[in-house]
Computed example of a mutant assay.
Amino acid sequence: MPVYFYWGDDDYQINQAVKSLIDNHVDPMWRDFNYAKINAAGDLEVMDGLNQAATAPFGTGDRLTWLADTAIAQKCSEALLAELERTFKHLPTNSYILFTATNKPDGRAKSTKLIQKYAQVLEFSLIPPWKIDAIAQLVKQSAAVMNLKITADGIDLLVDAIGNDSRRLNMELQKLQLFHGQKAAAISAKEIATLVQASAHNSLQLASAIRSANTSQALSLTAELLRNNEVGLRICATLVGQVRTWLWIRLMQEAGVRDDKEIADAAEIGNPKRVYFLKQEVQGLSSQKLMRSLSILLQLEGDLKHGKDETATLQTAMIELCQAMTR
């Protein structure tokens, strides 16, 4: 299939998939002629990319046109929709086109239906940091691909140290591969601890510190996350997700709902058994406190997206969030 649509917020996995497409289709000797990456935020840029993709490649190998950060699966004019369909139907057999986007395609949009008809659609989303079992499974799968045997306690240590950071997981597994060589024995947690910075501090622990109004711990965790190259917007996104979940739990409780499955459905929690623990977490918190916190986080997201200093902006928000939990 000559059309690909990759979406999700795991930039590392998307970039790895793109690299695989380039390696498989583009002759390195003809790359300057047959590979193009276009920031396709607007209709004109998408049109330009479609025109390039419709051109047969030069020399040997195939052509690959990458339209990055596109919004065609969210909104698409009728003119662009017609151009997409015309291009998809008449792409040269040795020309490939790739669209990438952060947001999930809108299933109601005509363009999404067109993409689903002609393209191979793949999701590359980060595993939510609270889905420990899913992260552990990713660690196991990634280790197996690299022919690494890791003990159960070693897997647990990597999950705690790395969280849902797929880029760092790949880097740490490569490090372990070099260290372990061709040894038959599985790598233990003790061995891993000597090579991997086993910092269990993550954005969920930061959310816990905020919930407890522990300002000094929240600031310390924020500083450590930034030192470990965690992106401010990703920290913010995790906090937004956690606070929103707490808010749903609290609102359902205040409405008199007692059934955990009903609460799980409303809060979009996959495992209803998790609701019991979430109820313990929101004890002592009112929906008003959580709504104030969510407002602060949405302001933080806007400030970060507008390019404000990441460290100072996050520090200010952490103080405000802890204060909101005490009012």
Rank of each mutant, 00 (worst) to 15 (best):
M1C: 11
P2L: 07
P2K: 00
F5D: 05
I14V: 12
Q16V: 13
H25P: 00
D27H: 13
P28Y: 10
F33D: 00
I38A: 00
I38K: 07
E45H: 00
Q52W: 03
Q52K: 13
A53H: 05
A54V: 00
A54H: 00
A54I: 01
T55H: 00
T55Y: 10
F58C: 08
W66F: 12
A68D: 01
I72N: 10
A73E: 06
A73F: 05
Q74L: 12
K75P: 09
A82D: 11
L84Y: 00
T87F: 03
H90E: 11
S95D: 05
Y96V: 09
I97Y: 07
L98G: 05
T102M: 06
P105S: 07
R108Q: 10
R108F: 02
A109E: 07
A109Y: 00
A109K: 10
K110R: 12
K110N: 10
S111K: 02
T112S: 06
K113S: 10
K113Y: 00
L114D: 04
L122R: 13
W130C: 03
I132T: 15
D133K: 15
I135L: 02
S142R: 15
L148H: 03
L148A: 06
A152R: 14
D153R: 02
I155H: 00
L158R: 01
L158H: 02
D165H: 06
S166F: 11
S166E: 03
L169S: 08
L169E: 04
K175Q: 07
K175P: 07
H180G: 14
G181T: 09
K183H: 03
A186G: 09
A186V: 02
S188A: 00
K190F: 09
T194V: 11
Q197R: 01
Q197G: 09
A198W: 10
H201M: 13
R211P: 06
A213D: 01
S216R: 15
S216H: 13
S220G: 08
L221C: 06
A223W: 03
E224C: 03
A237R: 07
A237E: 03
L239T: 08
V240R: 05
V240I: 15
V240C: 02
T245Q: 14
W246I: 05
L247Y: 12
L251Q: 15
M252D: 12
R258H: 09
D259A: 01
I263V: 07
D265T: 07
I269H: 09
P272D: 07
R274V: 06
V275G: 08
F277R: 06
K279I: 06
K279V: 02
S286D: 09
I296Y: 10
L297M: 11
L298W: 02
L304I: 09
K308D: 02
D309F: 05
T311K: 15
I319Y: 09
Q323L: 15
Q323S: 15
M325P: 06
T326L: 13
R327F: 03
